[in-house]
């Protein structure tokens, strides 16, 4: 399987056009805007925190298939997690796409976000996958 096919898998393609996480939240408790100036990808994350827990999370914006899929998958896996759990998963995800060392258990812990592991083979696109996760990190650090 070449790099391209290993990146544009069915799960990525499906998530890149999925809309169930793409909307505003009525009772959001906070939001954060993320932008890649070099490519124009632009997302806004909205969150509802219930104490320490991410009780709801959604996004609006636009970007390439990788950035959209990464955002949607991130929302799937972080929803319901505590702030600390989420920050840990974000850090593992960011290490994974940058090809830094991550253990098998760590990869398991980020659940479906593992599907983006092969992005690390395409350095030109790593920042597309990272955008949502860095934005989420900023959002959580404020909360």
């Amino acid at each position: 399987m070449d790099n391209l096919e290993s990146m544009y898998t069915d799960i990525i393609m499906e998530q890149s056009t999925a809309t169930y996480n793409k909307h505003e939240l009525d009772n959001k408790t906070d939001s954060e805007h993320g932008h890649n100036p070099s490519c124009g990808d632009d997302i806004t994350l909205e969150i509802i925190m219930d104490g320490d827990k991410i009780s709801d999370l959604a996004f609006t914006g636009h970007g390439c298939a990788i950035s959209q899929a990464s955002t949607s998958i991130m929302i799937d896996v972080l929803k319901g997690k505590s702030k600390d759990e989420a920050l840990k998963m974000i850090s593992i995800f960011l290490k994974m796409v940058k090809r830094e060392e991550v253990s098998e258990e760590e990869l398991d812990s980020i659940e479906d976000a593992r599907a983006l592991q092969n992005i690390s083979n395409m350095p030109a696109r790593v920042k597309c996958a990272e955008l949502a996760w860095y934005t989420m990190e900023k959002l959580l650090e404020k909360n």
Partner: peptide
């Protein structure tokens, strides 16, 4: 999205610009 187009083109040896 143009970045996805550019990545596929890259895989067949075609260099184009994508973005703003």
């Amino acid at each position: 999205h143009p970045h996805d187009v550019a990545s596929v083109l890259d895989s067949v040896g075609v260099c184009v610009r994508s973005g703003n």
